[in-house]
Design a protein around this nucleic acid. Structure first.
Length: 265
DNA sequence: ACATTGACCTGAGAGC
DNA sequence: TGCTCTCAGGTCAATG
């Protein structure tokens, strides 16, 4: 689930709920979800501090802590955030809970435990270590920059879109969505796309991500021509009605419309 | 460089 | 109903 639009939605949720409150304690019920530190180290890193703001790069969310660095939140496949007051309201799988001195809590919920939270005392060094590419919504990225990213690269366009070291933020679902709206087959060789097609792909990508964020990643609020709500066996193309097909690309299941996204070659 | 596979975890849904 | 199998929106390491 958590790709760029989802994580951006979590970021706004954190901003709207949990900023500027002193952290009284941290409760961890699944130590494997805490990375780069023990639960005790995480608590001492955070105790007495406040989340002063947030940043996001690709699928990584960072809560900025005054002076001492950041807290990283990565959501794996099933992670999300929940803010509540009564401990009894904690959703199942609330593996890490940040307890604030106003009595509220922010939970990092992650059923499959493939995500993590981690203290980041040195943000610059950590970002360098992550090696993430430019955020897909970075205002400094334009069509020309996007074309430069593709230069000299080969392989299937879907795999390239999902490569976090090139462009950060797209996963299986949104790479499919973008290619669907661009009318490009997932296995289209990147090297066969001309400059105009790449520029159009870039504009489509931006539009899709922004639209998903506006819809708060709720499939019900997405435009009628979105593929995402149709991700199930036997569903029809929201544009032409043809039966959607799946294929394997980069080891993932890719949904596409055989009519709107003709096979290359 | 690029692609595929299995592992990491755990639950949901299908099929028997 | 209960069991077993397959699959799931993310990464990472190992292997062609």
């Amino acid at each position: 689930m958590p790709e760029l639009p989802d994580v951006e939605t979590f970021r706004r949720y954190l901003d709207a709920t949990a900023l500027h409150q002193t952290i009284a304690g941290v409760e961890v019920d699944a130590p494997r979800v805490v990375a780069r530190a023990s639960p005790q180290e995480l608590e001492s890193f955070l105790q007495g501090r406040q989340f002063a703001g947030t940043r996001r790069q690709g699928k990584h969310l960072f809560a900025v802590l005054d002076r001492i660095g950041w807290l990283e939140l990565h959501f794996g496949m099933t992670g999300y955030l929940a803010y509540f007051q009564d401990p009894g309201e904690a959703p199942a799988y609330s593996h890490v809970q940040f307890r604030f001195d106003n009595g509220f809590r922010l939970a990092f919920v992650d059923r499959r435990k493939l995500g993590h939270v981690a203290p980041v005392p040195d943000p610059d060094a950590y970002l360098a270590e992550l090696g993430l590419g430019v955020d897909a919504l970075d205002p400094g990225l334009d069509a020309a920059g996007f074309r430069r990213l593709a230069k000299g690269r080969r392989g299937q366009v879907k795999c390239w879109l999902m490569d976090q070291e090139t462009l950060a933020g797209l996963g299986n679902v949104y790479s499919d969505e973008v290619l669907f709206h661009a009318g490009i087959h997932p296995k289209q060789p990147l090297e066969d796309l001309g400059p105009e097609q790449l520029s159009r792909l870039f504009r489509t990508l931006r539009e899709v991500l922004e639209t998903a964020i506006e819809a708060k990643v709720d499939p019900e609020r997405m435009p009628a021509d979105f593929l995402l709500p149709q991700r199930e066996q036997g569903a029809g193309c929201p544009r032409c009605g043809a039966e959607l097909e799946t294929l394997k690309a980069c080891g993932r299941t890719a949904y596409h419309c055989p009519r709107c996204q003709p096979a290359p070659g």
